[in-house]
Write a protein that binds this DNA or RNA. Structure first.
Length: 565
RNA sequence: UGGGGGAUAGUUUAGCGGUAAAACUCCCGGCUCUGACCCGGGCAUCCUUGGUUCGAAUCCAGGUCCCCCAGCCA
């Protein structure tokens, strides 16, 4: 008891601050709740995305911070849309994000029997009735936002008849859509959810878990709160659009002999600029082939972000930065990139990779010769060690690092200019080779033999340090550069969101050359290509033909300077 | 007078009657064997109009704008 209190206080002090956590803290301190129990309730009809990540971090995070429990519960009440494939993917993604549920894995379908009994309970209490009204007519009877609805002619059906009909619905006697079970609440309510909501509908559909055991399925409203109650959830946290379902949520809890009294709290869902986080749209992107799949690195899905190389820690950090509130908002996607860089910068090993190669010939370096130099794996972390890099006469440098007629602010290579080849030598460009069309095909340089390692004895400074790869031994690679999937910050604001798809969201570079050590880069593991960005090997990689995904670029001040001129 | 919510820098969020804080973005500068990282500096009449108060982003009253709800989806 004393230990429990101490634990609670410690956890309480350690937890973050937002209005939900304030509520949890208060309920714990007041003694209304002894131990917090939350739940993450995905519907298995798609892959998890950034919006779910917020909910996952909130629910599992609160349980962790306050010494409570968080359940993973699949909201599988609509077999028409749900699949085992998604159930598996969701579990994989939640785990990858860094959360676990121990034995607390549940399915709303686990409670179909109990839910059915409670439906009969409502019928006997005169609080629910079987309605034969066809869908279109029912819609017409519901009224509008400003006009009250009309009572269904079946609303006064006696309980015995309702019970008989409902049992026959359950027995599979009627076709899809023939009848529904409705709660008898108030057809004149200003809250549309209270105008006799549907509790059960007839669906002769195979369910991933219950098979063909049920020809009727409960609706979200009838299943969710009661599932919470069965699991003794203390804080049922959901998004704002469920706010006006709360009176209904409470109506069921008050009308049924449920074993506990959960409370629903709502927060604003996450929106991110230049992306879309609606399952309907994401599903279309996949099924219509606009992306390669749910795990396409451009997708805002957990699986897509993972494949792109985004670490789980970066996602958690991002969610933390975004905060939790009740105000509608759209977060700048730049905040995600920032979180990714901040997570990767201190840990990602540095490598050299030339994305758009330009040949550089060191004229005064002996032909056929080469030497091994030492490069640090991380400039700020000596413990990261060093690796050998080969220097030779023929090298590759980045096309962007050379300009024949440079503007004043251009620090890199140009005729007559001296720069440093990182961890190598200082080189000075002496001449340029061009093809018939006038395009630069190679640079000729001289190197200062005394500058081995990158510094000359006389201490002279150069303005730029370039990355490079020796031609001999270089590994060929494909590099996939990703940018926003949509070309406007608010896709869909003017019509169909898919019309705002960015046709240039994927750029595939096939002629890249990278350091030989990259042959052993593990899939999904982040590295920094110096001066370029963070990358991770894609599952498509093969030892002799690596494929790298750009997770995110480095901040690029030069690009900004350039853009302004 | 349908019901329910929300308004603090360009973007998210903090602030809970004592004179607006942080992160991201952007701009200026410094440092630098990554034009990265890092370090300085800059960027807000707190939606509005009144009221209460010595004092209001915070309390009260009235406006304005935005979002959600008329699935047998969740």
């Amino acid at each position: 008891m004393v230990d429990t209190d101490t634990t609670t206080q410690t956890a309480t002090a350690a937890a973050g601050r937002d209005f939900i956590r304030d509520i949890v803290r208060a309920s714990l301190e007041s003694g209304h709740v002894r131990s917090v129990v939350t739940r993450f309730p995905p519907e298995p009809n798609g892959f998890l995305h950034l919006g779910h990540a917020k909910s996952i971090c909130l629910n599992f995070g609160i349980a962790r911070e306050f010494g409570g429990t968080c359940h993973l519960r699949f909201d599988d009440t609509n077999p028409v849309k749900e699949e085992q494939l998604f159930i598996d993917a969701i579990q994989r993604d939640v785990r990858w994000l860094g959360f676990g549920w121990d034995e607390h894995l549940y399915y709303a379908s686990d409670y179909f029997g109990q839910l059915y009994d409670w439906a009969e309970h409502l019928i006997r209490a005169g609080k629910a009735y079987v309605d034969d009204t066809p869908p279109e007519a029912m819609r017409a009877q519901r009224g509008t936002l400003t006009e009250p609805g009309q009572n269904s002619p079946f609303r006064t059906r006696p309980p015995e008849e309702n019970l008989d009909l409902f049992r026959r619905m359950r027995a599979g006697e009627f076709p899809n859509g023939a009848r529904v079970l409705r709660a008898k609440i108030d057809m004149a309510s200003g809250n549309m959810n209270l105008r006799d909501p549907v509790l059960y509908r007839i669906l002769h559909t195979h369910h991933p878990r219950t098979g063909d055991a049920w020809p009727i399925y409960p609706t979200y409203d009838f299943a969710h709160g009661q599932s919470d109650a069965i699991e003794h959830i203390t804080h049922s946290i959901c998004t704002l659009e469920f706010e006006d379902h709360r009176p209904l949520y409470d109506w069921f809890i008050d009308s049924l002999p449920v074993p506990s009294r959960p409370r629903q709290y709502e927060f604003a869902r996450l929106n991110v600029s230049y992306t879309i986080l609606s399952k309907r749209h994401l599903t279309r992107l996949v099924t219509e082939g606009h992306v390669s799949g749910w795990d396409d690195p451009r997708m805002p899905t957990i699986a897509g972000l993972r494949r792109r190389g985004v670490p789980a820690a970066a996602l958690r950090d991002f969610i933390g930065r975004v905060g939790v509130a009740r105000a509608y908002s759209t977060v700048d996607v730049a905040m995600l990139d920032s979180a990714i860089r901040d997570t990767l910068n201190p840990v990602a090993p540095r490598r050299m990779a030339v994305l758009r190669p330009l040949k550089l010939i060191v004229e005064n370096y002996p032909e056929g010769a080469c030497e091994t130099l030492e490069a640090r794996n991380h400039p700020d972390d000596p413990d990261a060690g060093v690796r050998p890099v080969t220097f030779a006469r023929d090298l590759w440098v980045e096309q962007d690092d050379f300009m024949e007629n440079p503007p004043k602010k251009f620090y890199r290579l140009s005729p007559g200019k001296e720069v440093r080849l990182r961890y190598g030598y200082l080189v000075t460009c002496t001449s340029v080779e061009k093809d018939e069309t006038g395009a630069v095909v190679a640079l000729r340089c001289t190197y200062d033999p005394a500058s081995k390692g990158g510094n000359s004895p006389d201490g002279r400074k150069v303005q730029a340090t370039l990355h490079w790869v020796a031609a001999a031994g270089a590994l060929a690679a494909e590099v996939r550069l990703y940018s926003h999937l949509f070309n406007r910050p608010d896709p869909g604001a003017e019509g169909d969101a898919l019309a705002d798809l960015n046709p240039d969201s994927l750029e595939v570079l096939t002629g890249c050359v990278v350091e030989p050590v990259l042959a052993s880069a593990a899939v999904g593991e982040a590295v920094q290509f110096e001066r370029t960005g963070y990358f991770a090997a894609d599952p498509d990689s093969r030892p002799d033909r690596m494929v790298f995904n750009r997770t995110t670029g480095l901040r690029d001040t030069w690009a900004k300077v350039q853009a302004k001129t």
